[in-house]
C-alpha cells in the first residue's frame, strides 16, 4: 500500500496526542498532578495541538477536504466515521478539563469525571483508527488481531514518553514523573513485543488469496500474468502496488525497533535513575526518538501491506 505522508503524520501525531491526553487526564482525575498554568498550557496544549494537527492533516489526502464533515454521518457501519465522531466528541471533555485545569482550580469530582471521560474517549478514538485497517480483508498484513493492539500500545507509548518529558520540565515535584516514566517503560516494552509478534506473524502466515483464487483458474495449474491490461500505470497500481520498502524492510524494522523502543527505553530508564536536569533532557530525547521511531514503524505498516488487487497485476500471492 502506498504510504501517504499525510496519513502517516496523522496516525503518529494523533496517536501520540491521544496518548498524552489520556495520560494527563488520568493523572488529573486521580489528583496526581496539580492544576496550573504551566503544565496546563504545555501539557494539554501540546496534546490538543498534536491531535488537531493530525486530524487536519488527515483531510489533506481527501479529494474534497471541504466535504470532510460528511464523514461524521455513517458511524453505524464505518470505522472511519466512528473515528471522526469519537475524535470530535473527545474535544468536549478534553477541552473542558484543559480549561479548568489551566485557568481554574477544579474540584476532585469534576477532575474525576472529566478525566475519566477524556481518557476513555481518547482510547476509543485510537481504537477506531486501528479498526479502520483491521477490517480490511483484502490486506492480509492489516486484517489480523495484532493491528488494533499495535495502534493502542504505540499511541500509549509515545503519549507516555511525551508526558514524561513534560512532567520532568513543568511538574518535577511529586511522584507523577516517576509513575509516568515507569508506565512509559512498560508501554515501550509492550510495543516492542507487539511489533516483534506482528512482524513474525506477517512473515510466517501466507495470505489466503493467490493468483489462482483471484482468477479461478487454479484447476489448470499455476497462474501467472501474461499481459497487463495496459502498458502504463493506473490508480490501482500506484495506490496498492507500492514496492519500495520490501527491499529495505529488514533494515527499516531494525531502525524502527531501535528508535521506537530500545533507545527510548534506555533513555527513560536513565532519566528515572538520574533525576534532575539530566532526566529532563533524557526524557525529551526519549520522546523525540519514540515519535520518530513510530513514524518509521507506521511507514512500514503501509509499505509492507500487500493488497489482493496486486494479484491481477503479476503478484502470485497477496
Amino acid at each position: 500500500m502506498h504510504p501517504a505522508a499525510s496519513v502517516i503524520f496523522f496516525t503518529v501525531s494523533s496517536g501520540a496526542g491521544y496518548g498524552l491526553l489520556a495520560t494527563l487526564a488520568l493523572l488529573a482525575a486521580f489528583g496526581l498532578i496539580a492544576p496550573g498554568l504551566g503544565l496546563g498550557l504545555a501539557g494539554f496544549g501540546l496534546a490538543l495541538a498534536l491531535v488537531t494537527a493530525g486530524l487536519l492533516s488527515s483531510t489533506f489526502h481527501l479529494g474534497h477536504p471541504e466535504r470532510a464533515w460528511r464523514a461524521l454521518t455513517q458511524w453505524r457501519s464505518s470505522w472511519l466515521s466512528r473515528e471522526g465522531v469519537a475524535a470530535v466528541v473527545t474535544y468536549v471533555p478534553a477541552g473542558l478539563l484543559a480549561l479548568l485545569f489551566t485557568f481554574f482550580t477544579p474540584g476532585p469530582g469534576a477532575r474525576l469525571v472529566l478525566g475519566l471521560a477524556t481518557a476513555a474517549m481518547a482510547v476509543l478514538t485510537v481504537y477506531s483508527t486501528g479498526m479502520i485497517y483491521r477490517v480490511l480483508k483484502p490486506v492480509h498484513q492489516w486484517h489480523n488481531a495484532w493491528v488494533v493492539p499495535g495502534y493502542l500500545v504505540l499511541g500509549a507509548a509515545t503519549g507516555l514518553l511525551a508526558a514524561h518529558a513534560l512532567l520532568r520540565a513543568f511538574a518535577p515535584e511529586g511522584s507523577a514523573p516517576a509513575i509516568v516514566g515507569i508506565a512509559a517503560l512498560a508501554a515501550v516494552a509492550a510495543g516492542f513485543l507487539l511489533k516483534r509478534g506482528y512482524w513474525a506473524f506477517i512473515d510466517a502466515t501466507p495470505a489466503a488469496s493467490t493468483a489462482e483464487t483471484a482468477t479461478g483458474l487454479g484447476a489448470f495449474g499455476r497462474v501467472r500474468l501474461l499481459e497487463a491490461p495496459h502498458t502504463g500505470t493506473n490508480f490501482l497500481m500506484q495506490e496498492m502496488g507500492y514496492r519500495v520498502a520490501r527491499k529495505h524492510a529488514a533494515r527499516l524494522r531494525l531502525i524502527a525497533q531501535l528508535a521506537a523502543f530500545l533507545l527510548p527505553a534506555a533513555f527513560t530508564l536513565a532519566a528515572l535513575l538520574l533525576g534532575g536536569v539530566a532526566a529532563s533532557l533524557l526524557a525529551i530525547v526519549a520522546a523525540a526518538l519514540g515519535i520518530l521511531g513510530v513514524a518509521v514503524e507506521r511507514w512500514l505498516f503501509f509499505a509492507e501491506a500487500k493488497h489482493t488487487v496486486s494479484l491481477y497485476y503479476g503478484a502470485e500471492r497477496a
Binding site: G63, H64, K137, P138, L236, H307, T308, V309
Partner: peptide, 24 residues
Amino acid sequence: TCIGCKLCSWACPYGAREFDHDAG
C-alpha cells in the same frame, strides 16, 4: 457527497474502484 478518502478502493479485493484525481 464522496470526499475522496479512497478507503472504499482499499476495501475492494478486486480493484473495481478507480480514483479520479481530477474530479477528486
